[in-house]
Amino acid sequence: MGSVLQLFSEYNIPGAFWVNIQLTLWSALFSLILGVILVVMRISPISSMRVFGRTYVEFFQNMPLTIIMVFMVLGVFAQLKLSFSTVFSVNFFWLAVVGLSLYTAAFVCESLRSGINTVPLGQAEAARALGLSFIQSASEIILPQAFRGSVAPLGNTFIALLKNSTVAAAASVATESSSLMSEMIEYHANSIVAIFLIFALGYVILVLPIGALTTFLSNKLAVRR
């Protein structure tokens, strides 16, 4: 027990988790915006938009996140010289956020699309019969109901996002939890199991409430039909 307390005093473990939570929150925000845009594209009457939306989703669903993260750092930053900040750690953080957002947006789009499938046909038909345009029927009728129907898949997507935020290690974000765990194990090889359990339990504590909240919200928000 004493050694565990010593580990806590020696390393900033909550700080590492905070980095992951920040990564998750920013990526959740951006991927949600991008995902909504993508899903509107996928159901829009303009065929080129539909093709673009489908291609984007296919591409990112079949691409390992690790390679995207490595690409953000080694390709976009090192070769193309795109950077967000001159401070390295800040720059890598935002590169990781961009990578995570691009990747997660494809899954957000698919979750929302599964929510659209829960909206009965009559809703769309009634909207058309009332003379609403595509944008009006999508934003006033379909998407609000789709959001309520897709709480569960969206929650799963964001749990996956929280866990995927550890892959930011591949984008050289050295302060996040998996990098810190690796570093701690390197210097305290004797208490390797204790170190792993600290981090693993940290994720269990983070993930389980999100899962419970998702279940609660998906029951509460589901449109009773």
Binding site: K163, N164, T166, V167, A169, S177, S178, M181, S182, I185, F196, F199, A200, Y203, V204, V207, L208
Partner: peptide
């Protein structure tokens, strides 16, 4: 609940 990367490391 545990990220795959942590298990691997």
């Amino acid at each position: 609940a545990v990220p795959v990367l942590m298990l691997m490391i």
